[in-house]
Design a binder for these strands. Structure first.
Lengths: 152, 152
DNA sequence: TGTTATTACATGCATACGCATATAAATTAG
DNA sequence: CTAATTTATATGCGTATGCATGTAATAACA
């Protein structure tokens, strides 16, 4: 059909899908960041709390957390200092590796994440709930996850 | 089936799809930004050139360009100043509205965008080409676009 | 075991960012 | 037609960011 016989999707199809996904992400994020809840915490800070929330026992090493974010390691290090000062995250040396910092959501941090998370979800639902059918959302999730797994 | 009878997808399905899309975007972007091509231009700067490239006659007003980005208007204004100094973008007052700036890709800006864009596409294909079938990529693009249109 | 390499995190420094606000042009109201 | 309002962009200022590098602990090697 395409003239090539390997198993790769064509350049164009791959790129078009990525650009569409990227543009959708920007558009939705633009809407979400207008929410009053994000006055309390920047998007990047929320993302840190979100990732900690989904780590086993709400705890990770700094370097592992960093792998899920777009910011640099030094930026994350300083952001954690600020979140620590605000009582949202605690930092302690890993007993099994004296180099490493173990980060953990505090009670306050957990509450904050849940509060913003709920508002976030509500807003998303309002914004997107009628955009597509239930089946389409499920398919979008499946394909996004597949893409994600491919690059990890 | 769900107990509700409206046309909205459930909270969970909507949110799960969004989170999967968001995480996929972060993961792919993390890979892309390691490319040597992004030493020349930050991701945000590339995004500006990309958007100008896709505007009619490679030209837009600052405020319209800003609508497609996550950065603030003042940040964009200063970024354009820097891109102008590097000869990649030109800025002139809109003759039909003396308040507005019309931005345009220069020849150098166009070349730069194309050069990085090509490397970008190549890397994406390498990274994602085998992740999914052609049909799945097309479906991912369709669903992402649908989501995008819903929030615009 | 002593030496080198690697890994984890922090810090100095220049720059980019966002918020609040200023300026100036266009639009609307009276 | 003037005054008030809105829209488009720019600027001051404090803060966050990234890059290069420093420090210290672990791992690899000879």
């Amino acid at each position: 059909m395409t003239g090539t016989s390997n198993t790769q999707a064509t350049l164009k199809v791959t790129t078009d899908a990525w650009e569409a996904l990227f543009r959708a992400q920007v558009a939705v994020m633009r809407q979400i960041t207008t929410m009053p809840e994000f006055a309390k915490l920047s998007l990047r800070e929320y993302d840190v709390l979100f990732n900690l929330r989904h780590a086993p026992e709400n705890e990770t090493r700094l370097v592992d957390l960093n792998k899920h974010l777009l910011i640099s390691q030094p930026s994350l290090s300083r952001m954690i200092t600020r979140l620590e000062e605000r009582g949202l995250v605690s930092r302690c040396t890993d007993p099994t590796d004296q180099r490493a910092s173990r980060l953990k959501l505090t009670e306050a941090g957990l509450s904050m994440q849940q509060e913003i998370g709920r508002a976030h979800v509500k807003q998303l639902h309002l914004l997107l709930g009628e955009a597509m059918s239930e089946e389409e959302f499920i398919e979008l999730q499946r394909l996004s996850t597949k893409l994600h797994n491919a690059v990890e």
